[in-house]
């Protein structure tokens, strides 16, 4: 059986993926602090020793998740910025943000929850702050889009846009089965994109 480096990488990545996915499920279900490394290993069907082979401990799991989250959020904005018109860029952000929450409402809730940790939770507050800072960075890029759109007080408009979108996302994650996604999406698009086309 010939084996090569790519295959080993593949096996490693698959294993890491499985561990993170399992840890995320447990964190969502029972919370970060109530979840032990043994429980993650057990649920992932691997030994604790093997898990430690890939991650130093529980905190590295949450750190990895936060990094992945930051990447995913950044990808949406970067994807939007590849489009030519600012209104198209906003539409892209709306569609992708809403789609991502709709696809995995529990994941959105998980990160939202992480962002609102009590200040004295010394472990999680670090990651809470990382997420908040990253959101602020994305917000700056979003403000540029509004500037390019040529609206009055672009920063204020951008803030209103974020507030609206965050509200919609919170509603979807809270009422995933009842929220009229398409209708609301259309409203948001027409409010922020269409009116300024003229």
């Amino acid at each position: 059986m010939p084996r090569n480096q790519e295959e080993n990488e593949r096996i490693r990545n698959k294993t890491k993926e499985k561990i993170i996915q399992t840890a995320m499920e447990l964190f969502i279900r029972q919370g970060y602090h109530a979840t032990s490394i043994s429980a993650v290993a057990n649920e992932a069907g691997i030994s604790k020793g093997l898990l430690y082979n890939y991650y130093k401990g529980k905190e590295e799991l949450i750190a990895t998740m936060v990094n992945m989250r930051i990447q995913n959020v950044a990808e949406v904005i970067e994807g939007a910025r590849t489009l030519k018109n600012p209104d198209k860029q906003l539409k892209y952000i709306i569609e992708h943000a809403i789609h991502n929450v709709y696809k995995e409402p529990q994941v959105f809730r998980f990160y939202l929850h992480l962002q609102t940790q009590p200040i004295e939770d010394e472990v999680l507050i670090k990651y809470s702050q990382i997420l908040i800072e990253e959101n602020a960075r994305q917000f700056e890029i979003q403000c540029q889009i509004f500037e390019e759109l040529g609206v009055d007080e672009p920063k204020k408009r951008s803030l209103y846009f974020s507030s609206t979108l965050q509200g919609v996302m919170l509603m979807i994650s809270t009422y995933p089965n009842q929220f009229p996604i398409e209708e609301i999406k259309e409203q948001v698009v027409s409010e922020f994109c269409d009116t300024h086309l003229k």
Partner: peptide, 23 residues
């Protein structure tokens, strides 16, 4: 086995299935 030898699609697929099952 031999370095540089191009294995068949069938064989790669076989290996890939195994790797996909990790861990």
């Amino acid at each position: 086995s031999l370095s540089g030898f191009e294995y068949s699609h069938e064989f790669k697929k076989y290996l890939d299935n195994i790797n996909q099952a990790a861990p």
